[in-house]
């Protein structure tokens, strides 16, 4: 088990360094970051001054090393737009995004797992069809459009919920539904498939044969085994959702890290964008690492692969 964890940790760290290099090199996609920063009206001397000021005249690898060394100490440089340290800007906004992510994945799990179990217990029944319909529709639903429809119906027509902002729990209801619905189809399908497979296995037949009550068979014997891959998927989806929060936050004007990313991209605020890409990637890497370790702990067969 320890060997598995160490191996998996090594991979995570290697991935993290590669991602950090890619997010740093984004800065150089435009060709000359100093010119991009100075704007179209700047003179040659202005650009040259900026190049010196931000150290763009040094070799790219040196700049990367410098950036990485500071980033490891929690210093992501200064935002071009706010003239404030990027780290404190992001720290301020991250709590909203984390809260949204936790609410979203909870909503997804609380709807998808019961639906998946119910669908697997009675395949081809009405509830199975409803679950299938919800998951097929969810995969095709553009989240920005879904969010706008919710605003039209629940904020404008019915007036039940506030259309934007983040001050009370009511502001989080619609964003949670939109973000959660994005993760729901995959979780539901996996729960259903896992339950179907487990319900056909020998130990379930044994449990039934020895006369265990049906509820006990379903929840103690079946769900406990079927849920293992779902745990891992939920962690992966959580990573995707934090990255996807950019769309949801922009629709509902939730001032989280996703919203900051969207604003910063529009403002050419590259240090902020770089740091945000790196941080969202780190969340994904940490979540998948934890999921794999949890999986290996729950199911020893996973440790060998």
């Amino acid at each position: 088990m320890l060997q598995f964890i160490l191996k998996r940790l090594g991979l995570a760290i290697l991935v993290a360094f590669t991602v950090s290099f890619i997010s740093f090199s984004l800065l150089f996609l435009s060709g000359d970051p100093a010119a991009a920063l100075a704007g179209e009206t700047a003179s040659g001397e202005d650009i040259e001054a900026l190049r010196k000021l931000y150290g763009f005249d040094r070799p790219m690898l040196v700049q990367y090393g410098d950036w990485l060394f500071s980033a490891l100490q929690g210093d992501f440089g200064e935002s071009y737009y706010f003239k404030l340290p990027v780290a404190s800007l992001i720290a301020e906004r991250l709590s909203v995004t984390m809260l949204l992510g936790v609410c979203g994945i909870s909503f997804a799990l609380l709807t998808a797992v019961p639906l998946g179990v119910a669908a697997a217990i009675r395949p081809n029944s009405l509830i199975d069809r409803v679950a299938l319909f919800l998951s097929v529709a969810g995969q095709a639903m553009p989240s920005f459009w879904f969010g706008l429809i919710l605003i039209v119906v629940f904020a404008i027509q019915l007036g039940w919920l506030p259309p934007s902002g983040a001050s009370t729990w009511r502001h989080f209801v619609m964003p949670t539904i939109v973000l959660g619905y994005y993760a729901m189809p995959a979780i539901m399908r996996l729960t259903r498939a896992g339950m179907l497979e487990v319900l056909n296995s020998d130990y379930i037949r044994t449990a039934r044969a020895k006369g265990a009550p049906e509820m006990r068979v379903m929840f103690k014997h079946a769900l406990r085994n079927a849920i293992i891959p779902v745990v891992s998927l939920a962690a992966v989806q959580m990573g995707f959702m934090l990255g996807g929060s950019i769309v949801v936050e922009s629709i509902f004007a939730l001032h989280g890290a996703g919203f900051l990313a969207w604003e910063s991209i529009g403002r050419n605020d590259l240090p902020t964008v770089q740091a945000l890409i790196l941080i969202f990637s780190m969340f994904y890497i940490v979540f998948t690492f934890l999921a794999d370790v949890l999986n290996a702990w729950l199911d020893p067969r996973m440790r060998s692969s």
Partner: peptide
């Protein structure tokens, strides 16, 4: 497998937005 892991770790929407904005 390593490259797939790296790619999955990058948030698609965010990276796409940033690259499109730069180019």
């Amino acid at each position: 497998t390593f490259l797939i892991n790296v790619r999955l770790a990058m948030p698609v929407v965010l990276v796409a937005l940033a690259v499109v904005a730069i180019l």
